Lab assay of single mutants.
Amino acid sequence: YFCHCCSVEIVPRLPDYICPRCESGFIEEL
């Protein structure tokens, strides 16, 4: 997954599918 807020590849935090770095939901499956 790619976080558009951090502009990095991340492993989303489940079950909410949010970025573990910034806690944004603005992520996209690569």
Results as ranks from 00 to 15, higher is better:
residue 6 C to W: 00
residue 30 L to T: 12
residue 4 H to T: 13
residue 15 P to S: 05
residue 2 F to W: 14
residue 17 Y to M: 15
residue 10 I to L: 03
residue 3 C to F: 00
residue 11 V to T: 14
residue 9 E to S: 05
residue 13 R to T: 13
residue 6 C to A: 04
residue 6 C to N: 03
residue 12 P to M: 04
residue 24 S to Y: 02
residue 10 I to M: 12
residue 17 Y to C: 09
residue 18 I to P: 04
residue 16 D to F: 07
residue 2 F to L: 09
residue 25 G to S: 13
residue 7 S to A: 10
residue 22 C to F: 02
residue 11 V to G: 10
residue 28 E to S: 12
residue 23 E to P: 00
residue 7 S to P: 01
residue 19 C to W: 00
residue 17 Y to T: 14
residue 8 V to D: 10
residue 7 S to Y: 07
residue 20 P to A: 05
residue 22 C to W: 01
residue 24 S to G: 13
residue 8 V to M: 11
residue 5 C to S: 11
residue 17 Y to N: 03
residue 17 Y to Q: 14
residue 12 P to L: 02
residue 27 I to L: 11
residue 20 P to Y: 04
residue 20 P to F: 01
residue 6 C to K: 04
residue 2 F to Q: 05
residue 18 I to H: 11
residue 3 C to I: 00
residue 18 I to E: 09
residue 30 L to K: 15
residue 24 S to Q: 09
residue 21 R to I: 05
residue 16 D to G: 11
residue 4 H to R: 13
residue 10 I to Y: 09
residue 28 E to G: 07
residue 9 E to R: 05
residue 28 E to M: 05
residue 5 C to W: 11
residue 6 C to F: 01
residue 30 L to Y: 14
residue 22 C to R: 01
residue 5 C to G: 11
residue 12 P to V: 07
residue 18 I to W: 05
residue 7 S to K: 02
residue 23 E to W: 01
residue 3 C to T: 02
residue 12 P to I: 06
residue 14 L to K: 12
residue 21 R to H: 05
residue 11 V to D: 14
residue 11 V to S: 12
residue 18 I to A: 07
residue 1 Y to C: 04
residue 21 R to P: 00
residue 29 E to P: 14
residue 21 R to G: 06
residue 19 C to K: 01
residue 19 C to S: 00
residue 1 Y to A: 04
residue 4 H to P: 13
residue 24 S to N: 03
residue 7 S to Q: 05
residue 19 C to E: 02
residue 3 C to G: 00
residue 7 S to C: 10
residue 26 F to R: 15
residue 2 F to M: 08
residue 28 E to T: 15
residue 12 P to G: 04
residue 2 F to K: 07
residue 11 V to C: 14
residue 9 E to G: 08
residue 8 V to G: 06
residue 16 D to L: 10
residue 16 D to Y: 02
residue 13 R to Q: 12
residue 19 C to R: 00
residue 27 I to T: 09
residue 13 R to F: 06
residue 21 R to V: 03
residue 14 L to A: 04
residue 19 C to H: 00
residue 5 C to D: 15
residue 12 P to H: 03
residue 11 V to W: 03
residue 16 D to N: 11
residue 15 P to I: 15
residue 6 C to Y: 02
residue 1 Y to G: 05
residue 10 I to H: 05
residue 3 C to W: 00
residue 28 E to V: 14
residue 20 P to H: 02
residue 5 C to N: 15
residue 13 R to E: 15
residue 5 C to L: 07
residue 5 C to M: 15
residue 17 Y to P: 12
residue 24 S to L: 06
residue 15 P to C: 01
residue 18 I to F: 12
residue 17 Y to E: 15
residue 11 V to Y: 10
residue 6 C to S: 03
residue 8 V to T: 09
residue 12 P to W: 00
